[in-house]
């Protein structure tokens, strides 16, 4: 028997179908009012229903076509994970380390993740980017960004 692989795009459409249903359900609770005096729920209900209908139609179309979305290769998946993780870590570390230091570290990590060879080039790139970000935001635009516990 042929094993069916989970199609990620169909799964995504199924999530949207569910989400459309939830939006319509929640909007229902806000009240429709009447057509002459529409309530706050009428418009989002219509949108939720449209999202659910489009997602259902796309699921049906994919099932008929019998095609599966192209899978991300190992290289792509690794880059996606490392980049997203670095961006998330930037947010978590920024209040503690300050925007200049965290920008330096994030740029270094990203350039290594993207296979920038050696350590000199990534270091120079990170230094230049951190300096540019400091000059742009702190010096030119006077935006008060977290400087970190060491520089407060």
């Amino acid at each position: 028997m042929r094993q069916r692989r989970l199609d990620v795009e169909t799964a995504f459409n199924a999530v949207l179908l569910g989400l459309g249903g939830v939006i319509a359900y929640v909007a229902w609770g806000y009240g429709f009012g009447s057509l002459a005096l529409p309530g706050p729920g009428l418009y989002p209900f219509f949108l939720g229903a449209t999202i659910a209908a489009c997602a259902a139609a796309l699921i049906a179309a994919r099932a008929r076509a019998g095609e599966a979305a192209p899978r991300l290769d190992k290289h792509g998946a690794r880059i996606l994970l490392v980049t997203a993780a670095t961006l998330c870590l930037w947010i978590l570390a920024m209040p503690v380390l300050g925007y200049v230091a965290v920008t330096f570290i994030a740029t270094y990590a990203l350039s290594k993740a993207l296979a920038l060879e050696g350590w000199r080039k990534p270091l120079a790139l990170s230094g230049a980017t951190a300096l540019f970000v400091y000059l742009l935001f702190g010096f030119w635009l006077f935006i008060d960004l977290p400087r970190g516990i060491l520089f407060e």
Binding site: T83, T86, L87, W90, I91, M94, Y99, T103, A106, T107, L110, S111, L114, A115, L116, K121, L125, S126, T129, F132, V133, F137, L141, I143, L145
Partner: peptide, 20 residues
């Protein structure tokens, strides 16, 4: 210009830019 040089810079400017 290689993307390895551009992408990290674009990413961190996006981060600082949207936070600011």
């Amino acid at each position: 210009i290689r993307p390895q040089l551009l992408l990290p810079v674009i990413s961190v400017i996006c981060l600082v830019g949207v936070y600011s």
